[in-house]
Design a protein around this nucleic acid. Structure first.
Lengths: 209, 209
DNA sequence: GCTATCCGGTGACTTTCGTCACAGTTTGAT
DNA sequence: ATCAAACTGTGACGAAAGTCACCGGATAGC
């Protein structure tokens, strides 16, 4: 039995049985790319454990972090994308070490008609991603960089389940489509405000962050 | 026969027959709100003719235009949202006078399992909206306001199918989450560059816009 | 016609953010 | 141990965008 217990609460028994037959469990190490941009997606990952991050790289190569995918969630863009045989617009990377179920597109297509619990899972996932994107848009359109930085650190902390964040200022700047010096300064201000502590390649979030 | 010819190319005959029975055709005037924020959506609009716009209003009331919906397209957010009985996160407004098919959620749910052409329509729509949102994010994250303004005017022109744009600078500023004075100045610069002509409540885009 | 309101234009100023330059420290490779 | 590379900190400057103040002209309602 490869499926985790939690899945039994989400999916109906007949579907679980098919899953046992048709899907495979994969692992990836933190940093591994799971879905690459321009790749034609033929299998859909559903996360069993760990976290993935999803990054957009625009046509001229500029990069920005969109959101995280947590356990028991999946990549909505991949659904819709591979169902039409299109290429991925985003990159999904393992944020932590992860385990995921790889679902062949053929199965996913059939299940959509056959199993209400799968249909509802797909719709829930898509809805979740829409909301994350709207969130990202709110952030970009309305928040100043210092607020965005706080939000970024909170999400990162949640994604890695730790108040210790292992990133250089440069990496944060890339995720936020900003520049290293600006991020350094904002972080320094947060440190002065006793919200966090700065180390080399590491940030410790304090209680009242 | 209420369904437009174009739909026959998209949907299979059996589905078209059900559509005739289960759906109703509605009209709305330019400016009418079709889907309101926080509204629980029980019917999904599929555009027959005209254009709708989709606007996000963040929790603190700030507003930004996300994208347009053209004929033979639908509102992906509504799909996923109403399938879960959730409330809408966005507002859809008639940009021009429109005609649309109103599809009860119950039908839409059944069709998803029953008709491949409907399933593929839904997936195509969702994919399209994802791409529009990614587009909006690219714009916000990477483009300067003057480039965004040009992009905005192009899209508006496409949405209304006219090179004459009837908007005050204030309205444009709202759509772009910016301020009136800034937009006025940028428009003036575009006029000096012979890209457009400015009138009261109206902008005429020139050939080499 | 008269007036209140809306709309566009513009100068002056501030804030926010990005860029350049450079320096000191840590780290890793040889 | 030495040296190069990576990381952080910071001052100085500039560009982009937002804000404030005010103006004159157009428009709509009466």
């Amino acid at each position: 039995m490869k499926l985790p217990l939690e899945f039994k609460e989400i999916f109906e028994p007949a579907l679980l049985a098919e899953m046992e037959l048709l899907t495979t469990v994969h692992e990836a190490k933190s940093g591994d790319i799971v879905v690459e941009i321009d790749q034609t997606v033929s299998d859909i990952p559903v996360l069993i454990s760990g976290t993935m991050n999803v990054v957009r790289i625009d046509p001229s190569g500029r990069e920005i972090l969109l959101y995280y995918i947590h356990a028991k969630e999946s990549c909505a863009m991949s659904f819709t994308c591979c169902m039409q045989g299109e290429r991925s617009e985003i990159r999904a990377t393992a944020e932590t070490d992860i385990e995921y179920l790889s679902i062949p597109i053929s199965a996913m297509d059939v299940w959509l008609s056959k199993y209400p619990s799968w249909k509802s899972f797909v719709m829930r996932t898509i809805r979740g991603r829409f909301n994350e994107l709207l969130n990202a848009i709110d952030q970009l359109a309305f928040q100043k960089l210092d607020e965005r930085l706080v939000h970024y650190l909170r999400e990162k902390s949640r994604a890695t389940n730790s108040s210790l964040i292992n990133l250089s200022h440069e990496e944060i700047a890339t995720d936020m489509a900003s520049s290293r010096e600006v991020i350094s300064r904002l972080l320094k201000r947060l440190e002065n405000d006793k919200k966090l502590l700065l180390y080399r390649n590491q940030i410790k979030l304090l209680k009242d962050f």
